[in-house]
């Protein structure tokens, strides 16, 4: 399959400050791609340019083969956008909001099917003002997918979800992905990126710092592992490129069970924080999350 999104040399400045600074990125058709980065890294600007809500200063952008700037309604018919919040629907019910939205798409999903997919059947006929924060967020997602998009933009979709709701939501995203939907996800949650994404891109200061699968990002898979255990009431730890041999060696020396044995590699979060830390030092205002 080809690329759903291609970005070449994308640049956008606000008041002379470059929010996006020569970004190059390809997102393949059918993949789940997570865009990570600290606040102010240029994530939102990039995504809003891809969505056609902002215009780039420079560079070439193609989304489903079309330049989003001035793209027509037939292009909008093929993409779905889950906004950070969708207000203004307090007085209608999820069913009414979805039915009205579905009518503008040419290949819309069944409203009842979408309500079931996001777990809102029981609230389908309750006015939206009476929904909890998590239920509203699921409605936002429902509004984004009701048009049966080829490409779905998800902007921090699970902010405010409880752990069970997040798991359910991840399941929904996996199902959409299995159906072939290309998904571009921005998130602050590293575990979410790790659970969902085929590939992860980290941006800071408007540039791409790293691009890989979650398991391999920043050389994680090649990194040395840390083996730790308790011996004589003291915590020991060593870093090694061959943890299996190391554990066997220590076990042979101690002669039995190793209390408190752990073998760890850097978490995605640690790798991520190490990647972006130089860029946070620049102005001191960035907030890693």
């Amino acid at each position: 399959m080809g690329d759903a999104i291609t970005i070449r040399g994308l640049t956008k400045a606000y008041d002379g400050r470059r929010a996006v600074d020569g970004l190059d990125l390809d997102i393949r058709s059918g993949e789940v791609f997570a865009l990570l980065g600290p606040n102010g890294a240029g994530k939102t600007t990039t995504v809003e340019i891809l969505e056609g809500f902002r215009t780039a200063d420079d560079g070439d952008v193609r989304v489903l083969g079309v330049d989003p700037r001035g793209a027509g309604l037939s292009w909008r018919d093929r993409i779905g956008i889950v906004l950070q919040s969708s207000g203004g629907l307090d007085l209608v019910t999820p069913r009414e909001a979805l039915a009205s939205t579905a009518r503008v798409y040419s290949h819309a999903r069944e409203v009842g099917e979408v309500l079931a997919a996001v777990g809102l059947q029981e609230k389908a006929d309750t006015r939206i003002v009476g929904l909890s924060g998590g239920q509203r967020r699921r409605l936002d997602v429902a509004l984004g997918i009701v048009g049966h998009p080829e490409l779905l933009f998800l902007d921090e979709p699970t902010t405010g979800f409880d752990p069970q709701a997040r798991r359910d939501f991840w399941e929904l995203i996996r199902e959409l992905s299995l159906e072939g939907t290309t998904i571009l996800l921005t998130t602050h949650y590293l575990d979410e990126a790790e659970a969902l994404a085929d590939r992860v891109g980290v941006i800071a200061a408007g540039r791409l710092l790293a691009l890989d699968t979650p398991a391999a990002l920043g050389g994680r898979s090649a990194d040395e592992a840390t083996v730790a255990w308790d011996e004589d009431g003291i915590r020991h730890s060593i870093r090694t490129a061959t943890p299996t041999a190391e554990v066997a060696r220590i076990a042979a020396r101690v002669g039995g069970e190793l209390p408190g044995l752990t073998v760890t590699r850097p978490t995605l979060e640690e790798t991520y924080l190490a990647l972006i830390s130089p860029h946070l030092a620049d102005d001191g205002s960035g907030v890693p999350a």
Binding site: F53, R76, S86, G88, V104
Partner: peptide
């Protein structure tokens, strides 16, 4: 004015709804 601020207009703009509608 309310719909512009609460994101209703942006949400509608994100769909293939003709603005005239």
């Amino acid at each position: 004015a309310t719909e512009r601020d609460d994101g209703t207009l942006k949400r509608l703009r994100a769909t293939p709804m003709p603005p005239v509608a």
